[in-house]
Write a protein that binds this DNA or RNA. Structure first.
Length: 425
RNA sequence: AGAGGAGUGGCAGAGUGGUCGAUUGCGGCGGUCUUGAAAACCGUUGUACCGCGAGGUACCGGGGGUUCGAAUCCCUCCUCCUCUGCCA
């Protein structure tokens, strides 16, 4: 969530930014925030003053008791009773005011970076580069991946339906090996780039969900194990970033770089329709995620580096891709700047999003209470960033479609050591 | 899952109703000494919020309660350890 002090100090900047997200009247929203915060301070001032008085009286009573002056002590007790009931009222006020403030802040998305274009939908995203030639498939070998997986029997949706339901495919044979190869390839590449590998839990508690911003925004999109109140992760971003919740790092610890492979679970309620056939959208899928915790001065440099890392993966996989800078309307609630990487899927003739790399600045760290001591020993919120590197299913879709021919499907060179085969045929 | 024990500052570990935000040791930081280091000695060393400041308030696993006053008593939840049971 946004920092109240930031809103106070850079009110116009915040308003302008939020307008790029198509918020109707950010001024009144942010004014409400400041008013609530002023109220909060006012109440604290009163409450603390009374509490101080009460504490002083309590000490007096103690001394009177010791001195054996019971009557004077009893008299003083009467005075504290009145103060106590007042403090209680003020305390309740304080809590409700603070709660409303937090609730309000939860409804306000992150302020976009100045380079974020205004816009409403994906149409308004800005393409910043495109790389690689779009394959020109022969008409006889231009099958969409959902036909290819049947042809070569490498992914079985019906079997998944039997076991679980729609959107939970079973990968078989070379299909399963391809999954494993991609995961290992992505992890190895991240490790070469200096990321420390972790394997986090795939269930998270409510607190973690709030800290990275999935709650209270996306509860409907996460699977919930009601018996224990735990959510299945929609992305490894949640558990990995939450490793640093409530941490006080030192400047020398930064940057923190982690990579983790996890399955991801998304209910995708209301998201089904055209264009979601086959591997394009699933309830369970595999993803390797990179996360960085950085000094605020370096986070945008880091974002570029992460973007280049992801692009490097796509280049090595020989997939044509483009990079988009998301517009205010299309960007996630918590991000300040997001790059989407899309690969071209040659049979579908569509661009498929395979990665999203974002800088959250202090939006997450404010909730996480993820701070560090800077060189002047001042406590500062760190910046958090994350990106997919990469999500598997659409990569698989593009690899299958783009590399098909009479002989079968040719695997990219970099994967062959991981796969132990060159062709799916 | 059952029985028992325990959760205190970066770590270790005192404190069982009244100047306790908390003794002490280690670690960290600053200094004295030294060519430099070690040792020794001296000082310092939690977080958040409020206040121009002096300073105040809160926090001893989380939440609630008793009391004029709670780290200390009560309730509840969580976590860890030991034993028993079960199990990939």
């Amino acid at each position: 969530m946004l920092q109240v002090n930031e809103i106070r100090e850079r009110f116009d900047h915040a308003c302008e930014g939020l307008k790029k997200r198509n918020l109707k009247n950010p001024e009144s929203l942010l004014h409400q925030v400041l008013e609530l915060d002023d109220q909060r301070k006012q109440i604290q001032l009163e409450r603390d003053g009374l509490q101080a008085e009460s504490n002083a009286l309590a000490r007096q009573i103690g001394q009177l008791m010791k001195a054996g002056e019971k009557e004077a002590a009893e008299k003083t007790k009467e005075r504290t009773a009145a103060i106590k009931s007042q403090v209680k009222i003020l305390e309740e006020d304080y809590i409700t005011t603070e709660k409303s403030l937090t609730q309000l802040l939860y409804t306000i998305p992150n302020v976009p970076h100045h380079t974020v274009p205004a816009g409403k939908t994906a149409e308004d995203n800005e393409e910043i580069l495109q790389n690689g030639e779009l394959p020109d498939l022969e008409p006889d070998y231009k099958l969409p991946h959902w036909d290819l997986i049947k042809k070569y029997d490498i992914v079985d949706f019906e079997l998944g339906v039997k076991i679980t339901g729609a959107g939970f495919p079973v990968y078989k044979g070379k299909g399963a090996k391809l999954q494993r190869a991609l995961i290992n390839f992505f992890l190895d590449e991240a490790e070469k780039a200096g990321y420390d590998e972790v394997q986090p839990p795939v269930l998270i508690n409510e607190e973690s969900g709030y800290a990275t911003g999935q709650l209270p925004d996306k509860e409907g999109q996460m699977y919930l194990a009601t018996e224990d109140g735990l959510y299945l992760i929609p992305t490894a971003e949640v558990p990995i970033t939450n490793m640093y919740r409530n941490d006080m790092l030192s400047e020398a610890d930064l940057p923190k770089k982690n990579v983790g492979y996890t399955p991801c679970f998304r209910r995708e309620a209301g998201n089904w329709g055209a264009h979601v056939r086959g591997l394009n959208r699933l309830h369970q899928f595999d993803k390797v995620e990179i996360v960085q915790i950085t000094h605020p001065d370096h986070s945008y440099q880091t974002l570029e580096a992460m973007s280049l890392h992801v692009q490097g993966l796509l280049q090595k996989l020989e997939l044509p891709y483009r990079v988009l800078r998301l517009c205010g309307g299309d960007m996630g609630f918590t991000a300040a700047l997001t790059y989407d990487m899309e690969v071209f899927s040659a049979a579908q003739e569509r661009w498929l999003e395979v990665s999203s790399v974002s800088n959250f600045e202090t939006y997450q760290s404010n909730r996480l209470k993820l701070r560090f001591k800077n060189e002047n020993k001042k406590t500062v919120l760190a910046h958090t960033l994350n990106g997919s590197a990469l999500a598997l299913p659409r990569i698989v879709a593009a690899l299958l479609e783009n590399n098909q021919s009479k002989k079968g499907i040719k695997m990219p060179e970099v994967l062959i050591p991981y796969l132990g085969f060159e062709w799916i045929s």
